[in-house]
């Protein structure tokens, strides 16, 4: 073989390798179904498999009825499902001021700005009915709405609804306290006030 022919065949080999490299198929062809495509493999003709009956999405297993509905056997519960701490109250206050105060006002008298601008009169938390109402009732109203008031289930997490209910209890106490709740040094000024 002449030197020129050897060189020529080498060049041919190199370029053939390059061209064949371009024909690689290893991961380019992926045998899979597109969403909702039909399949002959499964008896029902669907490529997608239905979820097993009774499947629950993570974080959606709500077996604690009282905690997630505010009711037990159809009755409003009277107790919180978890202990309320200072941090819970601060969170409840924040959520209340965001979601409830536009209508109920930050003092809870039902005369928030939306009501002043023509919306239906919202309930005052300082009425005898709501002072006596069990906490489960507040949870239920937030979850399902009440009269003209819409449901807040999609905007306020269940545990935050309990925290708001706890904060409403604090609001109620703040307007329904006795003279014993006032520190002694504040009492003289109060006695003279109207």
């Amino acid at each position: 073989m002449s030197r020129a022919r050897r060189l020529l065949s080498l060049a041919g080999l190199v370029s053939a390798a390059g061209v064949m490299g371009g024909c690689r198929q290893d991961m380019h062809n992926q045998p899979r179904y597109k969403p909702l495509a039909a399949s002959e493999f499964f008896a029902d003709g669907r490529s997608a498999r239905p979820v097993v009956e009774g499947t629950v999405a993570r974080g959606h297993l709500h077996i604690d009825q009282a905690r997630y509905t505010g009711k037990e056997n159809g009755e409003d519960v009277t107790e919180f499902p978890f202990p309320i701490t200072k941090a819970d109250l601060v969170r409840g206050q924040e959520r209340f001021n965001i979601y409830c105060s536009p209508c109920h006002s930050r003092i809870g008298d039902g005369n928030g700005m939306v009501v002043r601008r023509g919306f239906r009169q919202a309930a005052s938390y300082h009425s005898e009915k709501l002072i006596k109402a069990p906490v489960g009732h507040f949870f239920d109203v937030m979850t399902n709405g009440f009269g003209a008031m819409p449901s807040y289930a999609s905007r306020v997490e269940p545990d935050d609804r309990w925290r708001i209910a706890a904060y409403i209890r604090v609001l109620q106490l703040s307007e329904n306290a006795t003279i014993e709740d006032v520190p002694p040094e504040q009492r003289p000024a109060l006695e003279n006030a109207q």
Binding site: L171, L173, S174, E175, D181, V182
Partner: peptide, 10 residues
């Protein structure tokens, strides 16, 4: 019936 500050009520 007395009104107290919200922080005190908490």
């Amino acid at each position: 019936i007395v009104r107290i500050p919200i922080a005190r009520a908490m």
